[in-house]
Simulated assay, not measured.
Amino acid sequence: MTQIGMGTTSVLPRRLRDAFRLAAEAGFDGVEVMITSDRDTHDAARLAALSQEYGMPVLSIHAPVLLFSSYVFGRNPLVKLRRSVALAEAVGATTVVAHPPYRWQRRSAERFVETVRQLSRQTGMRIAVENMFPVTRGGIEHDPFAPSWNPGALAVDALTLDFSHAGMSGRSAADLAQEWGSRLQHVHLCDAASTRPGGTLRDEHLVPGRGAQPVAEVLRALAGSGFAGHIIAEINTRACGRDDDQRVAWLRETVEFARSHALVRH
């Protein structure tokens, strides 16, 4: 059964407790926890306590891959992934979201696919590799990720589709979803202003329906295919500042958008 969750990144710079509270208030089914330098995000006991307090299960764990979490769980991306899987097991999550390593992390990149497949077999955890994006310098496109920014090119079983990253890559999320087929098993729900070649270098994470990506089309197609993964709202609410009324309004708009399209069976 598809569950509609909220990513804790949707309420940054608010704290973890706020994320669980706002997810419950906005009507989500659960949360995806992004592991950051905030120690609470990698404390299984703390996550379990918040989950019980707000009735919000931890659906998925996002490995610490962003620049502000460079030293969380060590420097090695594969060690970070293993520890993220262990945390997911401890809190009852069924999915771990991972990014491909950066190209300069050559040794980890060479072993990334093998490690993902091995961990999945050993633990039964769904490790869903997320689409990233190329960058263009001087009119030449470069891929900063290895083996590829497009996880559809990798021999892994589960993929995460991020609509904002699709916009940055100049691709339609509908094209990526069709290309990936049944391997698309996790969604980061948001929108992006661009689908043109070259995309945009702004990782916008707009409220779905406010951009140019075919978000409703993709969700309806997934519903028709019997998709049973998680759909996680990952929108940028920094413009809300400390105005939680506005933030909750955006979150409710997002969850209502998801339910109106993703839960309709054809």
Rank of each mutant, 00 (worst) to 15 (best):
M1R: 08
T9W: 15
T9S: 14
S10I: 07
L12V: 09
P13E: 07
P13V: 02
L16T: 04
A19N: 08
F20Q: 11
L22I: 08
E25Y: 01
A26I: 04
E32C: 09
T36L: 06
S37T: 07
T41N: 07
A48G: 14
L50F: 12
Q52C: 07
E53M: 09
M56V: 08
S60M: 10
V65M: 07
V65R: 00
L66Y: 03
Y71C: 00
Y71Q: 00
P77W: 01
V79H: 02
L81H: 01
R83P: 07
R83N: 11
S84Y: 03
S84V: 00
V85Y: 06
A86S: 08
A86V: 01
G92D: 11
A93V: 10
T94C: 13
T94H: 15
A98I: 05
Y102H: 10
W104I: 06
W104S: 14
R106V: 08
E110T: 00
V113H: 04
V113S: 02
T115F: 01
R117H: 02
S120G: 12
R126F: 06
N131A: 09
N131H: 12
M132I: 06
F133V: 07
F133E: 11
F133G: 12
V135S: 10
G139C: 06
H142W: 12
F145M: 08
A146V: 03
P147L: 05
W149A: 09
N150S: 12
L154C: 09
A155P: 09
A155C: 04
V156P: 08
T160E: 09
M168W: 15
M168T: 12
S169R: 05
G170V: 12
R171W: 15
A177K: 02
E179A: 15
E179R: 11
G181L: 10
V187Q: 04
H188Q: 05
H188C: 02
C190I: 03
A192S: 15
G198P: 04
L201P: 12
L201F: 15
L201Q: 09
R202F: 15
L206H: 05
V207T: 05
G209K: 00
R210G: 02
G211E: 06
G211N: 05
A212S: 14
P214A: 12
V215K: 00
L219S: 06
A223M: 07
A223K: 04
G226F: 08
I231A: 03
A233F: 10
T237G: 14
T237D: 14
T237K: 12
A239T: 02
C240H: 15
R242K: 13
D243H: 13
L251K: 07
V255P: 03
V255S: 06
A258I: 15
A258G: 03
V264C: 00
